[in-house]
Design a binder for these strands. Structure first.
Length: 724
DNA sequence: AAAAAAT
């Protein structure tokens, strides 16, 4: 045991050397290392990747000074599609979220700050505001005309200027997390907003503009991005773009792209935008953090701006006639985005608000755990783009609040996750058993990190003549995350954690994963008593508290977040410097998702995992991951994996070696699906004839979308965290 | 036996 402790101390030094704790800007990145996709690593890894990454790990990360991140416009280093991490106003009217959990007042000001006053100007943002002084230079040149001609003619400027006002945020939007800052639109402009030219920008609103776009962006290594392989297959696949200017998305979108300071499309955007713009269905294998959200929001919104509300407007008018004004009853969104978790839905909604700024499109979000009455009232103010979790949407449909009759754009985000969570019946209910236009009429886009058989079937059922897009991983197990595994006994975990935390800079965000909800509460309490500004997120906390916790974490007010699996996937929190697996998961997929919370979009990150006897089940898979990502492998882990493999029977061996193929094995391709008799387009016209099988059939991507989609052949261990 | 999600 004492021997182990010494090793740990040494490991800690290494970790701290790796993590540049003195970085004051809180932004990772700044390196120029090339991302080498797994299938290329063996070939030129020594030359391009191995040395560079090894050197990086030993020598510590180089974090560029803030000036290099382009706030001054000198560098084009901004992430496209990256989530806006502003501190939203959600905390308003919520009260101190955790006081009821019986905590003492120890630990100083952090607790008192929780649930603090709403501030529409986002004071928590570390960045300056300089970029906005000159914002009309950023693509809105023509919009000025629109402002004077449209806004003033209608005499609505007072109302527009009122959008995003703090009191409105409170009374109309508080409570279900739409950012609290006005939701972009107010009921007073509702009757006019649907009329007129949807392709022309509505007047500016500086307050709202500030609220939407002042969130900190994050540095990105475009060199790394450029190496991310993308492969598009399908009939008549549109040419990909290299710049946002290559495709005409209209002045509203271009203006918002400029305000978001997106300079170059990410790989998934380069391909998805022209595909969606040319009205094709899409099945994209890509992970969050790849700029996926913007990849579908930009073209979909652009299309809505071009086409206008169409039938949906008349339907909304008709449905509201009894009230003497339209838009009051049933809403007919033009676009629907389904997401698996509430937080993810919110995140997408926040992006949608940005890209619908100065447009007539009103985005809404509905999800469980929040007051449905408030959500209904928000819907009634108009809803053209709806982001939803499936359960709550079905509820809304059954209450007659939402009609999908005119939903021309359907997006399923994180489709694999939604199926994992058992949402398939609700999804089919929404898509197939209601009034949504059939495939071929509507445009459907599916996104999924993996492409198992269930997703293939869903794609067959929901998509028409689709393009298949395979996007290589951005982060996950790749070399931009330094993975450390340290042996820590259960009884030593807390003190070891304190050691790690005490050496971590106050500005660095640290995400600590535990396996149980109880464990999350206990650990948060412990850290709190130790004086750390921390919060927690798990499924037993109220939705309000979950969002609050996430905001506290994002904003840096509570730079330590203790989380269960709820936070493992999809959540896009920039600047997470360190992910700590206080408890390792039993499932390697879960591990990959967790560590993927750091090292986002080309940034560098650190993941530390506490390993002990209880984690035998994950030994082999973990070892494989470390090796694949060219990480340092502790010798004890190696021998443990060896022992484990030679233990009795199947213990610790993955299903794939024990006959567990079946549903999870999807080396079967999009082409294979069609060729295998699922062909949505009839008979032999499979995508295989167009190279569809290249994505999987032994080509460069075979490694990306195997049974788990994380670039390896690992799969579930049979023994879980509880030793069953 | 965990977690997530409509109530």
């Amino acid at each position: 045991m004492s021997h182990v402790a010494v090793e740990n101390a040494h490991g800690l030094e290494q970790q701290l050397a790796v993590l540049d704790l003195s970085a004051a800007d809180g932004q990772g990145g700044g390196n120029s290392r090339r991302y080498i996709p797994p299938h290329l690593r063996n070939k030129d890894a020594p030359k391009n990747a191995g040395n560079a990454f090894a050197a990086g790990r030993q020598g510590g990360y180089t974090i560029a000074p803030a000036a290099n991140y382009g706030w001054d416009g000198t560098r084009n280093n901004f992430v496209n599609g990256y989530h806006d991490n502003r501190m939203t106003g959600n905390s308003f009217n919520r009260g101190p979220p955790r006081m009821e959990r019986g905590r003492g007042g120890v630990g100083g000001g952090y607790r008192n700050n929780r649930g603090g006053a709403f501030n529409p100007i986002n004071p928590a943002q570390p960045m300056g505001f300089a970029g906005y002084e000159n914002k009309d230079a950023g693509g809105w040149n023509t919009a000025k005309d629109a402002y004077s001609s449209f806004g003033n003619n209608r005499g609505k400027s007072a109302f527009f200027n009122d959008r995003g006002n703090a009191s409105r945020g409170r009374f109309e939007h508080g409570g279900f997390g739409n950012g609290g800052g006005g939701g972009g639109n107010s009921r007073w402009v509702e009757e006019s907003r649907d009329d007129g030219d949807w392709s022309k920008p509505t007047p500016r609103n500086e307050r709202l503009e500030h609220e939407l776009f002042s969130g900190s962006n994050t540095g990105i290594n475009f060199e790394k991005y450029d190496d991310i392989p993308v492969e598009a297959t399908g009939q008549n696949c549109p040419q990909h773009i290299e710049s946002f200017q290559d495709v005409d998305m209209g002045e509203i979108i271009m203006g918002n792209i400029a305000l978001s300071r997106y300079t170059r499309p990410t790989p998934v955007q380069k391909y998805a935008i022209p595909i969606i713009k040319s009205k094709r269905d899409l099945m994209a294998c890509a992970q969050t953090g790849s700029g996926k959200t913007a990849a579908f929001l930009l073209p979909v919104l652009s299309q809505i701006y071009t086409d206008g509300p169409g039938e949906a407007l008349n339907a909304a008018k008709a449905s509201g006639q009894e009230n003497g004004k339209y838009g009051r009853r049933k809403q007919y969104p033009i676009s629907l985005v389904l997401a698996p978790t509430r937080e993810l839905a919110l995140q997408i909604y926040d992006e949608a608000r940005k890209f619908s700024y100065r447009s007539r499109v009103r985005p809404c979000v509905v999800y469980g755990g929040a007051d449905i009455g408030q959500q209904i009232r928000d819907l009634e103010r108009g809803c053209h783009l709806l982001v939803a979790t499936p359960g709550r949407l079905v509820d809304m449909m059954e209450r007659g609040k939402i009609g999908l009759d005119y939903c021309n754009y359907l997006v399923l985000d994180e489709a694999d996750r939604m199926l994992d969570m058992g949402f398939e019946p609700q999804i089919r209910r929404i898509v197939e058993q209601d009034t949504m236009p059939p495939k071929g009429i509507r445009q459907t886009m599916m996104f999924s990190a993996t492409f198992p058989k269930e997703i293939q079937i869903l794609a067959r059922d929901f998509l028409e003549d689709y393009i298949f897009l395979a996007v290589g991983r951005v982060g996950s197990t790749s070399e931009n995350i330094t993975q450390k595994v340290v042996w820590v006994e259960e009884s030593d975990k807390r003190s070891f954690l304190l050691d790690l935390l005490s050496a971590t800079g106050k500005d660095s965000l640290t995400l600590v994963f535990v396996e149980t909800k109880k464990g999350a509460d206990a650990l948060e309490d412990f850290l709190y008593r130790e004086g750390y500004a921390c919060t927690s997120i798990h499924g037993d906390r109220s939705q309000r508290d979950r969002e609050e916790a996430l905001n506290q974490f994002r904003s840096g007010k509570c730079p330590i977040l203790v989380a269960t699996a709820v936070a493992a996937r999809g959540l896009d929190i920039s600047n997470v410097k360190h992910v700590i697996n206080f408890d390792l998961p039993s499932d390697i997929e879960e591990y990959v998702h967790r560590i993927g919370r750091t090292g986002r979009v080309g940034n560098l990150g650190l993941a530390t995992s506490f390993f002990n006897d209880k984690n035998g089940n994950i030994t082999k898979d973990l070892l494989d991951i470390l090796v694949e990502a060219k990480q340092e492998v502790p010798s004890w882990l190696e021998s443990l994996a060896y022992e484990h493999q030679h233990k009795s029977s199947n213990r610790g061996r993955s299903k794939r070696f024990s006959g567990g193929f079946g549903a999870r094995d999807y080396r079967q391709t999009a082409a294979g699906v069609n060729a295998g008799g699922f062909g949505g387009r009839g008979g032999g016209r499979s995508q295989a004839g167009h190279g569809g099988n290249r994505a999987f059939g032994g080509g460069g991507f075979s490694n990306f979308y195997t049974s788990d989609g994380y670039g390896g052949n690992y799969s579930h261990s049979q023994v879980d965290w509880w030793g069953n």
